[in-house]
């Protein structure tokens, strides 16, 4: 390897479809390869749903926006939602090129700690490299990165320093894998509540939205500023209860008005090098996650 070899012709970035044309349009075609995309949301917003759907849509041929690829799913939140994945895979249209079950092209690996993830990296690399199939591995999903870091580290300067140097190590390796094998990397992250709004570092604005609201709370992405430097793009999923209508005059036993509520889910683009500030509403159904045109 010589420095000369580092001069490369910039290639157009291939995208992996999310499986929904509305979301794809919002994301400029899907999840980009050779790049780390982060999905930030509180629990129950659909992070894992989106990830599972990506695992399946990566197998689609490029003519359908996929990568014709297998995928690697590393999960630190237990248990692995295999039933939901199965349900989603059955809801997909049958692909005649597949003589196998789509689930056979999804590899799952549990993660127990941040160190475990670092140890698994070289194994992942050799696995991706030596995986000879008509569906090479082109998608790595880590669900979630936050769970690995939220228990082990204390809130003192030394631990925080150790933690952020680990972020950069992990991200450096992930980006190396992404570049070397032209694959898309998706990580999910949790949120933390903002206690004192607009004060000090906690009020620090990262990305297009002035403030992130979900379930009526002000939140921000977990793992802080250091980790925000480690990802290329960041998406934020939010949900809010919305009163659709009141049941005319009916009251329950406590005298409260009965209301029909529905959950409004939204995807916001917080930052990305290639697409402008956008947002899009989406729903989660039995068949999966899909965007809504307004």
């Amino acid at each position: 390897m010589k420095p000369e070899n580092l001069l490369v012709r910039p290639r157009p970035t291939q995208k992996c479809t999310t499986g929904c044309p509305v979301l794809d349009r919002c994301l400029g075609g899907g999840i980009p390869c050779r790049s780390v995309t982060e999905i930030v949301a509180e629990s129950g917003c659909g992070k894992t749903q989106l990830c599972l759907q990506l695992l399946l849509s990566a197998q689609l041929p490029p003519s359908h926006g996929g990568l014709s690829a297998s995928s690697l799913y590393l999960h630190s939140e237990f248990p692995f939602p295999s039933r939901r994945l199965h349900q989603l895979s059955r809801a997909r249209p049958f692909d005649p090129r597949h003589d196998h079950d789509p689930l056979e092209y999804i590899f799952v690996h549990p993660l127990h700690s941040a160190d475990h993830l670092l140890d698994a990296m070289p194994k992942m690399e050799s696995f991706v490299e030596n995986f000879k199939s008509q569906f090479p591995i082109r998608l790595i999903v880590i669900d979630s990165i936050a769970a690995l870091f939220r228990s082990e580290f204390d809130n003192n300067p030394l631990d925080l320093k150790r933690r952020s140097s680990m972020f950069f190590k992990i991200s450096g390796k992930l980006k190396l894998l992404a570049e070397k094998f032209d694959l898309a990397v998706v990580v999910t992250n949790q949120v933390v509540d903002l206690v004192a709004p607009n004060e000090g570092i906690n009020g620090l604005r990262i990305g297009n939205l002035g403030c992130l609201d979900s379930s009526g709370r002000r939140v921000c992405a977990a793992l802080g500023l250091a980790w925000a430097n480690c990802v290329n793009s960041r998406l934020f999923l939010s949900r809010d209860k919305e009163i659709v209508s009141t049941v005319n005059g009916a009251r329950d036993e406590c005298g409260c008005e009965l209301m029909h509520c529905r959950t409004r889910r939204k995807l916001h683009l917080l930052f990305a090098p290639h697409i402008p500030d956008t947002s899009c509403e989406f729903v989660i159904t039995r068949e999966g996650i899909s965007g809504v045109c307004i």
């Binding site: 970035t13 980009p32 980006k175 090098p273």
Partner: peptide, 10 residues
Amino acid sequence: TEGSFMVERV
């Protein structure tokens, strides 16, 4: 060094 250079944006 970060992989944020996207040809489509350029």
